[in-house]
Simulated scan of single mutants.
Amino acid sequence: MAEIICDVSVEDPRWAKFGLEALATRVITAALAHLPAARWEVSILACDDKRIATLNADFRGKPVATNVLSWPSEERGAQTPGATPEPPDPKGDTELGDLAIAFDTCQAEAAAAGIAMSDHVSHLLIHGTLHLLGYDHEDDADGDLMESFETQILDKLGIADPYGPNTIGG
């Protein structure tokens, strides 16, 4: 059985009141359930829009706030568009990478969509975790695969499809 370690660093105190660590452990465990048994690790920076905008500028050349950013510990993408990335080796580096998530943007997006912030944050943490595993949405085939996997994981958690009509992604 896999052990999931979520190392959460809280920069914005609003995340401390939100209970991000417990939520992250639950949803990332669901996102990694298909992996071989190992001690998988994900680090999460819980920040605000100002901090994530700085990170987005530094690493992606986009000086604007976003909801979640990911930094995989190694390149894991599939060789063919629409193909499932190879899972990480449980005997290798089990540190999957880092995520940063912005409170302000998450809260605004959840309010705009009329959904619970915990559901939206769950979706974003799953989305970021899948990026750590090599999934992406650079083309339609990859995007469709990633969306399908996200909605399957969210469904297992009892969370509605975020790509349905009248939603943030739909």
Rank of each mutant, 00 (worst) to 15 (best):
V68C: 08
S70T: 07
S70R: 04
S70F: 03
W71P: 00
W71T: 04
W71H: 06
P72G: 04
P72D: 03
P72I: 04
S73A: 06
S73W: 01
E74R: 00
E75Y: 11
E75W: 07
R76I: 05
R76N: 10
R76E: 06
G77H: 06
G77A: 12
G77E: 07
A78S: 07
Q79R: 05
Q79K: 10
Q79T: 10
G82M: 04
A83H: 05
A83P: 01
T84E: 12
T84Y: 09
T84G: 02
P85V: 02
P85T: 03
E86W: 05
E86R: 12
P87G: 01
P87T: 01
P87V: 01
D89T: 10
K91H: 14
K91T: 15
G92W: 03
G92K: 00
T94W: 00
E95A: 02
E95Y: 12
L96E: 02
L96D: 04
G97E: 12
G97M: 13
D98R: 15
D98W: 11
D98I: 06
A100H: 15
I101W: 06
A102S: 15
F103P: 01
F103M: 08
D104N: 13
T105H: 05
T105F: 08
T105P: 00
T105L: 06
T105I: 13
C106H: 08
C106L: 14
Q107G: 03
Q107M: 11
A108R: 14
A108H: 11
A108V: 14
E109W: 03
E109Q: 05
E109S: 09
A110G: 01
A110D: 00
A111G: 12
A111H: 15
A112Q: 14
A112M: 14
A112W: 10
A112N: 15
A113N: 12
A113E: 15
G114V: 12
I115H: 01
I115G: 04
I115C: 13
I115S: 07
I115W: 01
A116E: 15
A116N: 13
A116M: 13
M117N: 09
M117F: 11
S118W: 08
S118K: 12
S118H: 12
